[in-house]
């Protein structure tokens, strides 16, 4: 067995993989939330649709995306391997329950992670898969008069079903035709049960990261009197509160909007 293989097969090596993939997924959440805040732009989905188009057509993003999918799979797989090993390490359970003063989230990372994995599968199936591999997402046409900066928007049906995106001009009018992921999002978020599932999943994100973010630093051995309080602060308030709250607001706001329509 090569030395690297031996390292990553050790208990600490597996934990290192969990920590590194976990932190990578944390950084992804920042980008994902940042981009999706475009959903709150009041422009008939123009910014969001252009952003979605950019993400699926810019090669470096596509490469990172596949690394991301790999990270999700590896994180889940190693969690499973470690959990099986941990179960084997205590074959006979205690009769009296352990009420050790450990945080709830730290003791339920597997449950929280399973909810998240289910969420990711449903979430990607609904948006990513349908956007990239099916023709079920509609199109929008944005006509902007470049002199007055007035934009009109209409649905658009291309002759070729594989059509993705075009940008043309007609006199003073700029015409942008793009896949309308925004409508698909709005449609999905008008279902209250779907929204409830999203909000619960974001709760799972909150509790998963409340423990996970600072735990990754502990595993990496990056613990210091001066920096650990900063790590814990970021893990609690940024990853445990702001990020999940930002994501959870999207289905809530879109549901309330759908009631007004």
């Amino acid at each position: 067995m090569s030395e690297f293989k031996q390292t990553f097969n050790s208990s600490l090596g597996k934990k290192l993989i969990m920590a590194l993939t976990g932190l990578f997924l944390c950084t992804f959440l920042i980008v994902h939330l940042g981009g999706n805040l475009l959903l709150f732009c009041d422009d008939n989905g123009y910014s969001f649709n252009m952003y979605a188009n950019f993400l699926t057509h810019f090669p470096p993003i596509e490469v990172v995306a596949y690394i991301l999918y790999l990270a999700i799979i590896v994180h889940a797989l190693y969690a499973l391997i470690l959990t099986v090993n941990n179960t084997k390490a205590r074959p006979v359970a205690y009769v009296a329950h352990n009420d050790a003063p450990a945080s709830w989230s730290s003791k339920n990372m597997g449950l929280l992670g399973s909810i998240l994995l289910l969420f990711i599968v449903i979430h990607m199936g609904d948006f990513w898969y349908k956007y990239k591999f099916t023709h079920t997402v509609g199109y929008k046409e944005y006509r902007t008069n470049v002199l007055t900066n007035q934009t009109t928007v209409s649905d658009f049906t291309p002759a070729d079903p594989t059509f993705e995106h075009s940008s043309t001009t007609e006199g003073d009018t700029e015409i942008i035709r793009v896949k309308d992921l925004h409508a698909r999002v709005a449609n999905s978020f008008s279902n209250v049960w779907y929204d409830l599932f999203y909000v619960i999943a974001m709760g799972a994100v909150a509790f998963h990261l409340l423990h996970g973010f600072q735990s990754a630093f502990q595993t990496l051995g990056w613990r210091h009197r001066k920096y650990t309080p900063i790590v814990k602060f970021i893990g609690t308030w940024f990853f445990g509160v702001i990020i999940p709250l930002g994501f959870a607001l999207m289905p809530i706001v879109y549901y309330l909007k759908s009631l007004g329509r």
């Binding site: 050790s10 208990s11 600490l12 597996k14 934990k15 470690l82 090993n85 941990n86 084997k88 390490a89 205590r90 352990n98 050790a100 003063p101 450990a102 945080s103 730290s106 003791k107 990372m109 423990h211 735990s215 502990q218 595993t219």
Partner: peptide, 17 residues
């Protein structure tokens, strides 16, 4: 660490118990 792994102990999940 190698001996610890060989003995069949579980893996730390940083609960602090």
């Amino acid at each position: 660490v190698a001996q610890m792994d060989e003995e069949g102990f579980g893996n730390c999940t940083n609960t602090g118990a």
